[in-house]
């Protein structure tokens, strides 16, 4: 589904060149949930933005569904992006549009016929369980409901790939749980490949099949989730895991230890 080869990203800042990512290679197979974790500042957000070219890599290639994104002209890139859904930490909904209008938005951009949009929006509202909120405005929704709108919107054009940028990081434990369950449902039952980045290890551990660990812009470890969390090899991974679970080992979010740690600023 995704093939990243020797990816590098530099930012030109007034202070000089800043290397955010260096020489990153990995592949994401169709149908899997691929987690990317790392401390803040490791380059996770930049990396996920390179997967739909919201950030253009400085070097290397990104192939999504066989297409090398760098070779596409703006129109082709737009069409490719319609096949890559994305959800965000702060939901990024249109404030002055209703839930239904927000979900219809990507379909309008893709210039679907009006009748089809109506039908598709109804389907999507059903998938995320917000049929009764169709006419509500974002400011009338809870955080979890807003993220459900975000998910419905990201799925609107039937993408085969969903990118999740810290999608649960602004939510409480219980809501995080319900959003993760929704994402699992989308992965399992709709067959959507998911790339999820999070600084919350428990989120990555719970949902990912395979995990990549990012540290200071470098990919230090990659492997099945079970291996990474039980037998980490890279020093950065070990540090990340011990720092996040001083007493109890890494536990799923339900344990309730993580939010307490988050409050203390440990996570």
């Amino acid at each position: 589904m995704i093939e990243v080869k020797n990816l590098g990203k530099d930012f030109i800042t007034p202070q000089g060149k800043l290397t955010a990512l260096r020489n990153i290679s990995f592949t994401v197979t169709k149908g899997e949930v691929f987690g990317i974790m790392g401390p803040s500042g490791a380059g996770k957000s930049t990396l996920v933005r390179c997967l739909n070219f919201l950030e253009r890599p400085t070097s290397g290639t990104v192939r999504v569904a066989g297409q090398d994104l760098a070779t596409l002209n703006p129109r082709e890139l737009a069409r490719a992006r319609q096949q890559i859904g994305m959800i965000f930490q702060h939901f990024n909904l249109l404030k002055l549009k209703t839930v239904a209008q927000n979900i219809a938005f990507p379909l309008e951009i893709a210039q679907w016929p009006r009748e089809d949009i109506k039908k598709r929006v109804a389907e999507l509202l059903d998938i995320v369980g917000l049929t009764d909120k169709a006419r509500a405005y974002p400011h009338q929704l809870s955080g979890g409901q807003k993220q459900r709108v975000g998910i419905a919107r990201a799925l609107a054009c039937r993408p085969r790939l969903l990118l999740s940028d810290e999608a649960t990081s602004a939510l409480d434990t219980e809501t995080t749980q319900s959003i993760l369950e929704l994402l699992q449902h989308i992965n399992r039952d709709l067959g959507v490949t998911i790339v999820i980045i999070s600084h919350e290890l428990a989120v990555i551990q719970q949902i990912s099949h395979r995990v990549a660990v990012l540290s200071e812009g470098k990919l230090v470890e990659i492997g099945p989730a079970a291996d990474i969390f039980t037998r980490p090899h890279a020093t950065a991974t070990k540090r990340l895991i011990t720092m996040n679970s001083p007493a109890q080992g890494t536990r799923p979010l339900r344990g309730g230890a993580q939010p307490a740690l988050a409050k203390r600023g440990v996570i």
Partner: peptide, 11 residues
Amino acid sequence: GVIEAAQSMGA
């Protein structure tokens, strides 16, 4: 973020 979301949809 809203502009970025629209860009991610291919607007």
